[in-house]
Design a protein around this nucleic acid. Structure first.
Lengths: 350, 350
DNA sequence: GGGTGAGTTTTGATCGATCCAATCAACGAG
DNA sequence: CTCGTTGATTGGATCGATCAAAACTCACCC
């Protein structure tokens, strides 16, 4: 079917195991074994079968396999609808990375719409599981009180979360990026450039991710024996809100570490509003290295999450979890990288 | 299975048609008909069967259906690996919209890695088709000389492209956004604000999308009887390249329409390098309304593509094409919206 | 020379839904 | 009272792969 040469192609629709078997002069089961447990075959037979397979350009039919084995080589990924046109570049990049590495492992990613915390949330997962025999799920954007990990774990369904399970009992595998390490690295970098009054602009307490990033800043400050009093402010993840919030600390800080690039942008605004210039008068470091960071003027230093690695780690964990559903949960914590740009490049006079 | 009430749940694994049939006191075939051709059943029987279905929380097993019917309710979408970490927010937003609207139509999006123009490009599509019985494909980022539309069309495989097929014969369905209309709207807006020297910063000729956007600018300028001579420059889609390229026209232009937000950013840089300020001294309008646009200072006016609508239109076209593979190709051209922000808000003195 | 057994290969049943053709019931026309 | 017709329902056969278990092929040993 791949080559529609009018000359020799098979007339009927599809190339099946039976056809390959006939061509190779063996039984269907032998061909199946050639694919799934090649070790069982005598070398000569194996070679003959493999030749027949490639000559006919045979492709196993997943539906048939899936019907028998109840596994589909599919990984479910619920994309949550954006609140209001707000896109989440980090998760999209992650999805790319995930899909790439899953594809290399012979798996495909199946998208479905997952309502954020709806009552029938579990139903969507159940549906995918039973209709499509999905082998595993990848969760992203887990939050405190997220019921999905528990639900999946209880049922013994393989899954990996991108993001620690911040809930009380941590159950199931996850891969995450060490946000605290990222903000700490930012502090170290700023200290090395001569800063001593380094503020943190974060999100309201209670969002695992945000608290983690705040924690990194706090500990790094303590390590450098620098005060943190009155140097922390919180704001929703919105440029204008951040601009308003950051005002009061810009008087006493020479540098700001922000929990996101959006917050950092708010910082830019606040500085410009007060006639000062980001990067020159006050250093700013963001988080996530969103596409915009490199484009800004001055370009924004930011902490980049190693999303390709996260994707690979997720795939790796899924594979081993699929092979051994009973194994103990594994956790992978990856280290982000500080990208230094103009906004924090200036060195303070000593 | 959804409710794991220990009381009455079925012992064995899955709820099948046979089980439902038994419960409703009819044959399997009748249950199948209840789902696929309800009109065939007597109202009373239909009701009885439907009750049994919902009581048992029956879910049809796609693999079994697919094995028989060779259709899977899956839509293939090849995500191309980013050249070098460069993310494409527009395509990601589109993917969200597509997945959402497909989901509502009972279809799911299946991701796979599609090498950009490799020799075995077609093989990946063929693979998905034969292994997963994908019902249709969605193409994005089509380019001049793209062989995928022709390949799919020749084989009678349903597909929709997001983006006109810029090649000679346009073959197959597509949905696209009227880029020319977008740049024309930008020109109109700038003219209304008093500008007369309006430059266009585009990509090198030859990229369907880019030429289309340039065309819109040119025609709008002619309509307003304004000169275009020496007001067009080209650059690769890179901030620094754009900054360098735009230099020579910033002397004679009071406004710039750019073919992308990235190019517009290059414009910002060039202006600042020469001591002028975007929005104040020279108006700038970008294209795509990337997340960064609203965050910049000054915020960047930009032409927004109606991606939700594009997604819906793609799904709609796919559905009708799946129902009638022979029908004539349809084309949908949607109108983008100019989002006016600070970078083009100032009105020139008369 | 038949039994033993490891190594290969084959046979038959099975997964769950849909296709096609056949059956059954009801009813009015001849 | 039988026949034909329409409408509703049912009975196998089937899609293409995998599983479990049987069967075959040798070489080897008592």
């Amino acid at each position: 079917m791949a080559r529609t040469t009018p000359t020799g192609g098979p007339k009927k629709g599809s190339v099946t195991l039976a056809l390959v078997a006939q061509r190779a002069g063996v039984s269907v089961q032998t061909v199946s074994n050639a694919l799934n447990s090649p070790g069982l075959l005598a070398p000569r037979t194996l070679k003959r079968v493999q030749e027949a397979i490639s000559e006919l350009d045979y492709r196993p039919h997943q539906a048939a396999r899936s019907l028998r084995t109840r596994s589909s080589r599919l990984i479910g990924y619920g994309i949550q609808p954006q609140p209001n046109g707000l896109s989440t570049p980090v998760l999209d990049d992650f999805l790319h990375a995930l899909s790439d590495s899953a594809d290399k492992a012979g798996y495909r990613v199946l998208l479905f719409a997952a309502p954020v915390g709806a009552d029938d949330e579990a139903d969507r997962y159940d549906e995918l599981l039973r209709e499509h025999s999905v082998d595993a799920f990848v969760l992203s954007g887990t939050y405190r009180g997220d019921r999905r990990p528990g639900w999946l774990h209880k049922r013994g369904i393989p899954f990996v979360a991108f993001g620690r399970s911040w809930s009380a009992r941590d159950t199931g595998d996850w891969v995450d990026v060490d946000g605290a390490h990222g903000t700490a690295a930012a502090v170290d970098h700023l200290v090395a450039a001569g800063h001593r009054q380094i503020a943190f602009l974060g999100w309201p307490r209670g969002s695992g991710v945000g608290d983690d990033r705040a924690q990194g800043w706090r500990e790094a400050m303590r390590r450098h024996e620098l005060p943190v009093r009155d140097l922390r402010v919180s704001s929703l993840n919105d440029v204008d809100a951040a601009r308003d919030a950051v005002g009061r600390i810009l008087a006493k800080a020479t540098a700001v570490v922000a929990a996101s690039d959006t917050l950092a942008l708010g910082c830019y605004r606040a500085l410009r509003d007060s006639g000062r210039s980001p990067g020159q008068d006050v250093a700013v470091v963001g988080f996530d290295d969103s596409p915009a960071a490199g484009l800004l003027s001055p370009s924004l230093s930011s902490v980049r999450q190693p999303l390709e690695e996260v994707g690979r780690a997720c795939t790796r964990q899924l594979m081993s979890r699929i092979n051994d559903p009973q194994a103990d949960p594994e956790h992978v914590l990856l280290t982000p990288e500080l990208i230094v740009r103009e906004s924090s490049a200036a060195v303070l006079p000593h």
